[in-house]
Computed example of a mutant assay.
Amino acid sequence: MLVVDDQDLIRAGLVALLRAAPGLEVVGEAADGEGAVAAAVRVRPDVILMDIRMPGMDGTTATERILALAEGPAPRILVLTTFDLDEYVYAALRAGASGFLLKDTGPQRLIEAVTAVAGGDLLFAPSVTRRLIEAYVERAGLAPGAAGADLDVLTARECEVLRLTARGLSNTEIAGQLYIGEATVKTHLNRTMSKLNVDSRAQAVVVAYETGLVVPGGPGL
Rank of each mutant, 00 (worst) to 15 (best):
Y179N: 15
L162Q: 10
E158Y: 14
L162N: 02
N190E: 14
I77E: 13
E138Q: 14
D152I: 10
E210V: 15
V161L: 09
V79W: 03
R131D: 14
L154G: 05
T155M: 07
S170Y: 15
I180P: 10
L85Q: 12
L102I: 10
S194Y: 00
A140I: 01
V185G: 07
H188R: 07
E210G: 10
L154C: 03
A92M: 10
A140G: 07
R157H: 05
A125R: 10
E71Y: 11
T115M: 08
S194G: 02
F124Q: 04
Q177K: 15
A202W: 03
K186F: 01
E210R: 08
E71H: 11
R94W: 06
L85E: 12
P144G: 11
E87D: 10
S200L: 15
L151W: 09
Y88C: 12
A97I: 12
N171R: 00
A74C: 03
L102H: 13
A91F: 08
G141I: 06
A208T: 00
G120V: 07
G72K: 05
V198P: 00
L178Q: 04
Y90P: 01
T172M: 10
F124N: 00
I111Q: 08
Y88P: 00
V161G: 03
F100N: 04
L122I: 00
I180K: 04
A175T: 09
A208G: 05
R94T: 12
A97W: 01
E160H: 14
T165D: 02
